[in-house]
Amino acid sequence: MPSALKLDRAAVRIGGGLVWSDVDLEVEQGEFVAILGPNGAGKSTLLKALLGLVPLSHGSVLVFGHPVRRGNDDVGYLPQRRRFDPDLRIRATDLVRLGLDGGRWGVPLPSAAKRRRVAQMIELVGATGYQDRAIGELSGGEQQRVLIAQALVSGARMLMLDEPLESLDLSNQQAISELIRGICERQGVTVLLVAHDVNPILPFIDRVVYVAGGHVLSGQPRDVIRTETLTRLYGAPVEVLHTGDGRLVVVGQYEPVSHHAIDH
């Protein structure tokens, strides 16, 4: 079984500046990986490189043993975004359907099989109750569920989620994290999740990938989520606390901002 992801001495340059380089990384199928790091360190660029949206300047990357390409049905993607425009008048179910055949040219014809597939994904993420409402009218948490269904509908075996928990309230952060963990476990889907705040996903992740200072490192949560490691990686004081029920909480003294001005 090939690795879900394999980077070999990979590097990316944007506008002449090296975002990160010399990246060796391997992710096994079915792993839930958190991608952490300061703002502007190149977390989103890492996802875009894995999607083929940004070319590598050096090295190689394989996804399920194959070179990256756009439109790969194996990969579902949620870009970093603010909310959909409240006036956007297209139903949630139509948005999911776009993930299935939105890239096809030609006259759209009705298809019962595709409709069933869309309904199945909407049910999986628990969005059946609002599938016929316009996407702009839905809450942030509801929109994220619909987008996860869209990312999965083509039969994706890997989800790349860029800050899916940002701008959600605490209970929705919790619910979406649990949903993603469930999909990872039950469907065997590999998850790469870029996060600004590690706390909501900390109980669910198998591995941490750190993007900081032009390098990408990876490790077990218990090895990386430590006061001294995080302080070094962020270049700012960060403290890891242990709660009474054995959970970890990461506390930063202020918003960490990288001196690399590239924010992609």
Partner: peptide, 23 residues
């Protein structure tokens, strides 16, 4: 318009995902 209808809707409502999906 009819022929490019689906990619056009996709690129209109969700350009980033559409690009990743090969549109």
């Amino acid at each position: 318009l009819v022929w490019m209808g689906r990619p056009l809707v996709f690129a209109s409502v969700d350009p980033d995902v559409a690009a990743a999906r090969g549109v």
